[in-house]
Amino acid sequence: MKYHLSLLALLAVIVGCSSTSELTYVGDLKNEDFVQPRLIPFNQRTDYYQSGRSKYFPLLIEETVDRLDSGERSDIEKGTDQIGKITIACYDKNFSAGFALSDKLFRNYKDHPAYWNAIGTCYLLKNDFRKAQLYYNKSLDSMKDYAPAFNNLGVIYRKKNEQQKAFVAFERAASLSRFSYTPKFNMAQMYLDHGLISQALELLTTLNKIAPNDVDVIASLGTAYLFDGKYRAALSEYNKLPGSVTSRPEVGLNYALAHFLKGDKSKARDVFGEVKNNNSSLNGYYDELKRVLR
């Protein structure tokens, strides 16, 4: 049945409104408000941080806020990279600001994989693994082969000690984004962790060629050499590292050991003295080395 009804007349009758043109409930809402904002499309070619050049982390600087210094982060915060702002807020533990911004950007970026990846990262940084996982999966819903999401799921799996799953995730991310370095770096770390030294060396050597000044790569390569029995080569790499890096126990302890193995106990002690004992998983190593260097 077709009803040729005039909205105004109908409303006047059906709802008993005295004035047929008066909007009773919606205030000053306008039709334009319903217009969906322009969706920001994802562009793979611009999906990187354009903050500039990092002296110490040239390898990963375009892929992760974790390797940006405060100045570079500040540039992003002042810039137009909205998603980057979310991530930086969360890295700064300012989660409320990060989420507030993400809510604001939702309607523009709801189909953007990097957007959802950023929200997942916020939750990951909050150690809310479930929510992080949900949003990384959301990112993959937007784009099924978005490498960062796979990589970050790998990070979650590592945190949950699901090592095999983590490695598969990193490997997947690496295969999906052959020119990305974070997954490869993470794979190299897993190789090192799991005693696959030759595989680690191969990968780290490649990365080193790409970014010979990257302290992460140098440190990892040095460790790889050390675990391969090549303490001199390890030393050669460790010597390139700044003190801010060698003071980290995961680097400094091996650096000190390398000096010791070379026979330079004094140097070993110097290096050891700078190491911050703030990694509980290396406490045993720390104590053992301390005894040896005594």
């Binding site: 793979q44 999906d47 990187y48 941080y49 990963l60 375009e62 892929e63 992760t64 806020v65 974790d66 390797r67 998603i83 980057g84 991530t87 990097a114 990846n117 950023a118 990262t121 990951l124 940084l125 978005y146 490498a147 960062p148 990589n151 970050n152 790998g154 990070v155 590592r158 945190k159 983590a166 990193f170 991310a173 984004s177 020119f179 990305s180 370095y181 974070t182 997954p183 770096f185 993470n186 770390q189 897993m190 992460d216």
Partner: peptide, 9 residues
């Protein structure tokens, strides 16, 4: 436990 990847690079 791995570096978080924010962007594809």
């Amino acid at each position: 436990n791995g570096i978080i990847m924010d962007r594809g690079g």
